[in-house]
Simulated assay, not measured.
Amino acid sequence: MVEPQTIGSSHLALRDQVLAELRRRIVDGDYPPGERLTEDRLASDFGTSRNPVREALRVVEADGLVTLVPRRGAVVATPDASAVSELFAVRSSLESVAARLAAERATPAQVAELRALLEKAREATERGDLSQVAELNSAFHMRVTELSGNRWLRTLSASVYLHVHWIFRLTAAHRAPHSWQEHIRLVDAIADGDGDAAAIAAQVHVDAAALAAAADVTSAPEKG
């Protein structure tokens, strides 16, 4: 059960704080697919009035994280086969290009940063901390994108990775050990400066993630 949390101490506008926390709870699985999210409940969870909650719900609906159901209100979305396929088609293109460019441009120190992230992910995987694994997975991929040096890739990936993180978190129990090994092969290719191998490693990784998402996420039962 999610512990109530009062929001209001940050310098951000209240609606932005509520939005950030609502996104985090959905993406991290605190509010799982099919969970009903009433304005009253969220206002109680966050210790706010209903107005910023209502505004935040409109944004996460536009994000595709919740759907509005007649007579039920907002419900956390359940990824379907079509949505997952579309997401991973875009991800495949972005990450292959980013990996190739990173292999061409990354310095030894930057490769060492990637390996440090992989070591943290290995440790989190071994202790079963799936929330941390999901955070490190996103951090790893965003770092590879940053190393590409392409600002358009960075901008596009930031939007895509909200959903990638969400789906990875839902499938992390099955994907985490395999994902870590696939990341090692990708970093090895980047370290070798081999753009072709890096692009292939990224493609293989995304293909495997897409299969896992299709098998696990789309078969998960919805909450009533």
Rank of each mutant, 00 (worst) to 15 (best):
P33K: 00
R25A: 01
D40W: 04
R105A: 11
A103L: 00
D63Y: 11
R185P: 00
K223P: 02
A214P: 00
L42W: 07
S92E: 07
V187E: 06
T145Y: 10
L162W: 11
L101A: 10
H178N: 09
V206P: 00
P108G: 09
S44T: 06
E35L: 01
G193P: 07
A158R: 15
P32L: 12
P79M: 00
E55K: 13
M1Y: 07
A208Q: 10
V84R: 13
G47I: 14
A202R: 00
V144E: 00
D192P: 09
P4R: 06
V18M: 03
R24A: 14
Y161K: 09
H163L: 15
A220W: 07
G195L: 13
A176K: 05
A112Y: 11
T145A: 06
P32G: 14
D40S: 13
A202D: 04
P70R: 12
R41L: 14
I184C: 07
N150F: 08
V69I: 15
S82W: 07
V18D: 13
H141T: 03
N137A: 12
F46E: 10
R115E: 11
R100H: 11
E39Q: 15
A112M: 05
S10I: 02
S96N: 02
P52H: 00
P79S: 08
V144L: 02
S157Y: 08
D194F: 04
T78V: 03
S157M: 06
E39K: 12
D207R: 09
N137R: 08
H11Y: 11
T38N: 12
A158S: 14
H163M: 05
A62F: 06
A209Y: 11
V69G: 10
I26F: 04
R175E: 15
L94Y: 04
V206Q: 00
E95G: 02
A124F: 07
H174S: 14
R105S: 14
H174V: 09
A83L: 06
P221D: 14
E135M: 05
E3Q: 14
S85N: 13
Q5A: 06
T107L: 10
E61F: 00
P4L: 05
F168H: 14
S219A: 12
A83N: 01
A124M: 07
L37H: 08
W152F: 09
A212G: 15
F46T: 08
R71K: 12
H205I: 07
R24W: 09
R71W: 13
M1K: 10
L42A: 05
V204I: 10
V111N: 01
W166L: 01
R115C: 08
P32N: 11
D30E: 14
A220P: 03
S82N: 11
T6M: 08
P108Y: 10
A13I: 01
E182A: 12
R151D: 10
A98M: 02
V75R: 10
H165L: 02
G149Y: 06
V59K: 03
F140K: 10
L117N: 12
D192H: 12
T218H: 03
T67P: 01
R72V: 15
A89V: 03
M142F: 14
H205N: 02
Q203H: 14
T6Q: 14
L19G: 07
D196H: 11
E35H: 05
A173W: 05
D40P: 04
H165F: 01
S131T: 15
F46H: 03
V66P: 03
W166G: 04
V217C: 08
E104V: 12
A124H: 06
T48V: 13
P70C: 04
